[in-house]
């Protein structure tokens, strides 16, 4: 949703191959990745893309596999759009945008086979590794999913 006034301004910038934040058409925002900043997590990362900042932590646990995949580990993804990050986020259980975000991240990890779930079985039907991936938005502009 862009107002007509801003639209024509953005348009005039585009014609000069410029963008509102001073970048050229093919410039990425400044990317900063901080690996393992959280010592209580099994793995973590803090990623900043321009002003957008997220914190992701991974916790491992052992538990029972799902009956339809007795030899596979379990991936659980969650996303928090905490009120800390924006005046538009409200406290309480995850709303549809947070759930959408979590599911999109889940598919990204699962379908790319980034984690070999089939190698995370300890004892078939009884014990497998469970990977919890927790996403926390610290500040947001646009494009959280990509990041």
């Amino acid at each position: 949703m862009t107002m007509t006034l801003i639209k024509s301004y953005l348009d005039s910038l585009l014609k000069k191959k410029k963008r509102e934040d001073g970048r050229g058409l093919y410039d990425y925002r400044e990317l900063k990745i901080d690996v393992n900043p959280i010592d209580k997590a099994n793995g973590s990362a803090r990623v900043k893309l321009g002003d957008t900042a997220v914190l992701v932590g991974v916790k491992l646990d052992v538990g029972e596999p799902f009956p339809d995949s007795p030899n596979d580990g379990i991936l659980i993804t969650n996303a928090e759009l905490a009120p800390l990050a924006s005046a538009e986020f409200e406290p309480g259980p995850p709303r549809e945008d947070a759930i959408e975000l979590a599911r999109v991240i889940d598919r990204g990890i699962r379908e790319s086979k980034a984690i070999a779930l089939d190698k995370m079985c300890i004892k078939p039907k009884e014990k497998v590794w469970i990977v919890f991936v927790w996403h926390h938005t610290i500040n947001t502009r646009i494009g959280i999913v990509r990041e």
Binding site: K40, P93, F132
Partner: peptide
């Protein structure tokens, strides 16, 4: 005032909310 711990901030994973 709302105090919250992220679920990977403690030794045991803690429930969100």
């Amino acid at each position: 005032c709302l105090y919250d711990m992220v679920s990977f901030s403690t030794s045991d994973r803690n429930r969100p909310g």
